[in-house]
Structure formats: structure tokens, C-alpha cells
Design a protein around this nucleic acid. Structure first.
Lengths: 210, 210, 210, 210
DNA sequence: TATGAATGAGGGTTCATTCAT
DNA sequence: AATGAATGAACCCTCATTCAT
């Protein structure tokens, strides 16, 4: 008797999203295996019987939570694509957004990575999200190459994976492992390294924003 | 009545290392939580009871295994430091060694990352290993800066973290997530990106370091 | 707030009998323990809560259903008693009716047997129904004995139990366990065995019916 | 880590058979569904964890118990076939043995009937046992027919099913439903009914086999 | 040393029943 | 009358660990 989001009374919707929220917090704090269904229920303030009204089990909740997080990551990426300006500014904006998306979702993505090691469905979800970021990075580089602003000999996909990985990995070290750094410094350095790595030609008069 | 490596009969040593080996395989394939002590014993061809002759529990075995892996990572790093040649060649050699070290230990390091999220002792071990790599990268960069071969404005530590992360993360994407690439191409590109990112001045005549 | 059959709106009556019908089907297909109240409600097209408007619980529904079935068995028996004719024809008619009553109710009677093993109320109901059949059989035999048509040394009750059991059991083997046989052959053989077993004297000129 | 009968230490064998014995008692008293694994463990005097050392679950225990019971039924039948003497004496001996086999196993056979309704594996086991009895009865009748001692027009299989069913069913009514009767009377009546039903010719001089 | 039987805390899940709407 | 969300007792099962042999 599992109930989906649709066709729920207001009360049901409230309970369901309380469980999703509680689940997200629990997974982030403890990891998939360490989370007990009862923990989630206690956080959400419902009995454990109620849990099974909405989800078939712990894994189903996890799927729901990760999907939501991945959705946020997608959204962050879309917003980022609106950034205008000269190439360097765009790279900087992208890096900043990327770092912030990670700041919000880092733990859950790591949980997903963990889950992906043992379950192909999670693996597929992970690869799907990753692909969006890779493609966006590769497209950006290709455009610069076409405009003669970046080294045309670089393989766009592989380069995007490597430099994107640099940002993603730094976010992890920074946020999860406690490496000290402030956002401004980090974004500036990431941008400098990225720009130079692709051989970005400084547009003759690089008027920096005031 | 746990027995350490020292003071063991030959038979005891054999049993113990069979358990460590079996444990490593099991952890790599299934992850810490999914591994049951029985799995390890079955792999090692030993009865359950025997396990506790050598280890106080599953966690103790994990500690032992991760320590061994970290030791291999250290060793790889040390070997890498012997590489001679011009800066570019040294960076290339380091990247190649790094990728290979990951090829051998990627899964266990990820397990350690996972364990680090919930246990401070594992966290400390992880940070310790990471520090070795970071320091080596930072030292290398500082030397180049002193020789006037790299951009002196770069923060050595932060830059080493970022570029080292690029390599580490690529190894993960390549080996664990199945991104297609051959080692030569990957090493060449990583090296090119790394070198350009730090503003490496192409040394006209490759004077080997003293 | 359980509502009985009397004093119900038309709508209420419809809902109630939908539940009884759904319950009978469910019990026949799955057995008492395997049936969940939700199954019954789903079959009846009613929400869980509504069930308890009409029945105090699963057992109450079961009681209702079995009572109905037992009623049908009684009715079958009554109809059978109207059969006229010579003794052999009456025995044949009774056997045929008995087999047919089982064809319609076999599963539910078995459920009742099952329930009777653990609950004295069901046991009493079962014995009550059985008694009707036994008594009818014993009375029939006694009449034949008084008429000098059957072996007077037979204990009427015990004989009725044994020969009646033969018919009942055959019905079970035939219908529930899938033994191949057609009704005509079965009824003829049961009648022959029964008649001979009680030492039925062939009435010299048996033709009664017009 | 389920352990079969073979390859067990003496202690293991003791524990295992204690569980089987406890299981049999529990199933007989309460029926499959009502039995809790913990009940069985308590009866056997072991912790519930131990149960799973020997059986994969409740159903596996039930399979084991029913197999044992069916084995006893087989054995009873084999012993019965040794009975010598004139036809009437043989029928009487068979009926007595049959009643006694039921006295010992009645409850478990009913459990099996119950289980057979929902599980084809149990159904197959039930049919297999039943077939042995049917075949034995049919063979006996056929031999009498060939010797000119019984009505040759009777279908041996169907007749055996019906008369065998009479005995089986009486056993149930007698033992499970509490119908009052003593064994001697019951066996004598069953034998008389059976013999007359098949038209057994009284052998003038009852020569017992040497 | 090695064995494997025994233990029991701990966790996931089901489902009859209650109750506010 | 009907609904369906919420409850929690009751069960099944796993597995790390202990211990007698």
C-alpha cells in the first residue's frame, strides 16, 4: 500500500515530505548503511509503520532523496549557463556555482557514489548527472576553440572531465575534509588554473568588472 | 587473546596473511558494511572462530588492510620522487605513477574515504596519506617557482591540492566509473594541463636538476 | 459501531454484502491466515476503514461467511430429503446432491476445518453441520433396517459416519486434489458400494417412479 | 550457513533433531501459520539464532518435518503389506494399520493438506504419499478380482480411493473431531463395510497361509 | 591454534485496528 | 457512511562475537 506523491491529501503530503527531509538529513549525517528506518521516523515524528505507507523500504527513500538532490544539481547547472560576459568571467561564474552546488549537496553525492558501487540503478543515475556537467564543460571549451580563444589541440571531453574533476574534487577536500580556504581565493585560483590550462588567450582588453 | 604479527608460528603467519588478503578482496568488492566476517573467513578458508584469534573484530581487520594499502601508496610516492629529468618530464612521471597507484588501490582508498566520514581514526589516516601527496606536490611547485620556471604568485599548497585532485579524480572517473581513455593519452593531457596551469616556462635546454 | 444486516440503508446493505462476497472469494483462494483485510476491501472496492463499520474484525467476517456456506449445505441436504423412490434411487440421489454441495462449498468447509483446529467456536459450528448429515444418514439407514431391507446388525450412526465420510472424502480427492473422474461414474460407484456395504436387499420389483 | 544432517558433530545432531522434534509438536498443536520460530526454539531449548544455523526458515523446518512424517506413513504401509491370511483378515489388518498410522500422524497430514493448498511442492508430496496407499489398495482389489473373490466390474483404482477414503476420513472424525468409538468396533465395522462393498465372497474354509 | 555451535542484540517489515476528517 | 492516514505489536531474520572442545 505504498503511496506516491500524486493523489495524496494535504496531510499525506506533509508526512511524506517530512520523511524525505528527515531521510536526507539522516543519510547526509550517517550514510546509507548506518541509517535506521526508525531514525528517519523519529526525525520525522511518525511511527515506523507510517514509513511503509509511503515507501517500500529504506532504498526507496534513498532513491527519492538522491533524485531530489540530483535535480538540484541539474538546476544549479542550468542557472550557471545563463552567465554572460567574457570567457574568463564565465569560467569564474561556473566555478563559483559549481562549488556552491557542491556545498549544498556534497554529502548526498558522496552517498550516491557509494551506493553506485554496488547498485547499477544508482550508478546510472550518477553517470547521468555527471554527464550533464561534462557535456556543458566540453561544449564551452569547444566554443572557445572555435573562436580561436583556446588551444584547439585539446580533446574537449577529456579536458572537461579533468578540469571539472579538479573543481569537484577540491570542493570535496574543502568541505568534507576540512581544508582551510575561503571561497573567493579558491574560485580565483581555480579559474586561473583552468584558464591557463586550456590556453585561454586573454581578450586584448580584459576589462574586469568594477 | 588476539595475536599480532610478531611472535607467530609459521602456520599462524600464513593464516593471518590469508585473512588480510581475503579481507582486502572482500572490502574492495563489497565495501565495509556489506562484508561479513564469514565472507572473509570463507575466502581465507578458515573457520569463524579462528578470525578472532588474529583480530579483535571486523574493524581491526579493516584498519590493517587500509594501513597496508596506504603503505603502498606511500611507496609509490617515494618511487616517484626518484624520477629525474626536466620539469615537464618529472610532472609526467609523477602523473603516471599517481594514476598507477590509483589503479592498484582506488577501491580501498574509496572505502577509507567512506569510513572516514564516520570514524575519526580513519579520517586521521586518510588525511595523513593525503598530506604526503599534497606536500610533495607543493614542494615540487615551490622549487619550480624558486627556479623562476613557474608562476610565483600561485599558492603552492592550494595549487597542489587542486591539480593533484585533478589527477586523483580523473583516476576515479577512469577506473571506477568506466570513462574510456588510454593511459598514454590521459597522462599526456594531464601533464599538458598541469604544466600550463602553473605557467611552466618551457626550458629551452633541458638542464637536469643537480 | 458495528452495523448488523438489519437497520441498514440500501447503500449500507450493498457495501456489506460486497464485503461478504469478497471475503468468501478471498478465503477460498487463500485461506484464513493468508487473507489480509486489505485484500478483502480491495476486492469489494471499499476503503480499509469502512470494513470496520460492518465487522469487528477478520474473524467476524469469517464467521459470517462460514455461516452462509453452512446454510447452503443445510439447504442442499433438505432438498435431498425430498427425493422419492426406491432405496437405491434415494441413496443415489443423496450421493449426487452431496457431491454437488461439496463442489460448491468444498474450499470453505476445508477452511472451517482448519479454523476448527484452533478455535472452539468454529469447531462447534463444524460439528453442528456435520451432525445434520450424520443424523440424516443414520435415520435413513435405520428406516431401511426397520423395513428389513438393510443389515440390522449395523450401528446406524457409525455406519452413516463411515459411508458419509467415503462420499465427502471422495469429493475432496476429486475436486481439490484433481483425481480424474466424471460425476456419473463416481455417483454410480459410490451408490453401488454404499448399497452393498449396508447389505441392501434389492426390492424384487423396484419400479416406483412413473 | 545452513547445515544439513550430514557432516555434523554429535552436538550439532542433537540440536538439529531437537528442533525437528519441537517443530513437529508445535505444528501439530498450532498449525503452520500459528507457529512462531521462537516457539520452536523455546521448546527445543535453543536461542532463535541457533535455529537459522540449521534451517533457512520456518518453511524449511516444515518441509523436514512433513518429510519425516510421510516417511513414517510409507513405513506403516510397507509393514502392512506383510500381513498374511485370508482376504477378510488382510483387509482387517490393513484397516487397523491404517487407522494407527493416522493416529500417529493425523495432525501433520492435515497440516500438509493445508500447506498443499497454497504450495505446489507440498501438494506434490501429498499426492505422492496418497498414491502409495491408493495403489496398494487397487492392487489388492485387483488380485481378489482375479481370484474370483471380488466383483470384477469394480474399477480398482476408483474403488480403492473411495474405500480408502472412508477409512482415512473416519480416522479424522474419530481422532480430530472427537467422535466416540473404540478401535475394535471401528476396525470391525470398517472391515465389514469394505468387504461387503467389494462383494467379497466368503471363502468357505479360511485356510491361513503356511 | 583451530573449530563450529551457540548466542542475542538489532533491524526491517507486515498488517490488524483506530481515529480524525 | 466512507475515507485513508497513523499506529505499534508482533515477527522474521542477520551477523558479530563468544566459548567449549
Amino acid at each position: 500500500m505504498i503511496v506516491k506523491s500524486e493523489a495524496l491529501t494535504a496531510r499525506g503530503k506533509r508526512t511524506r515530505s517530512a520523511l524525505v527531509q528527515a531521510g536526507r538529513e539522516a543519510f547526509e549525517e550517517q550514510g546509507f548503511d548506518a541509517v535506521r528506518v526508525d531514525d528517519v521516523c523519529a526525525r520525522a515524528g511518525v511511527s515506523h509503520g507510517t514509513f511503509y505507507t509511503y515507501f517500500s523500504g529504506k532504498e526507496a527513500l534513498f532513491t527519492e532523496v538522491t533524485s531530489a538532490v540530483m535535480g538540484e544539481m541539474f538546476a544549479a547547472n542550468v542557472v550557471g549557463s545563463l552567465a554572460p560576459g567574457d570567457p574568463r568571467a564565465r569560467i569564474e561564474a561556473a566555478n563559483r556555482l559549481y562549488l556552491r552546488a557542491w556545498a549544498a549537496n556534497s554529502r548526498m553525492v558522496r552517498m550516491l557514489e557509494q551506493a553506485a558501487a554496488g547498485d547499477d540503478r544508482f550508478r546510472a543515475l550518477l553517470l547521468e548527472v555527471r554527464e550533464v556537467f561534462v557535456r556543458r564543460g566540453a561544449d564551452g571549451l569547444r566554443r572557445l576553440q572555435e573562436q580561436g580563444l583556446a588551444d584547439p589541440s585539446l580533446d574537449p571531453r577529456l579536458t572537461a572531465i579533468m578540469l571539472g574533476g579538479m573543481v569537484e574534487h577540491f570542493a570535496h577536500v574543502w568541505l568534507d575534509l576540512g581544508e582551510q580556504a575561503d571561497e573567493e581565493t579558491a574560485v580565483a585560483l581555480l579559474t586561473k588554473l583552468w584558464a591557463r590550462a586550456i590556453g585561454l588567450t586573454p581578450t586584448s582588453i580584459t576589462e574586469v568588472a568594477p
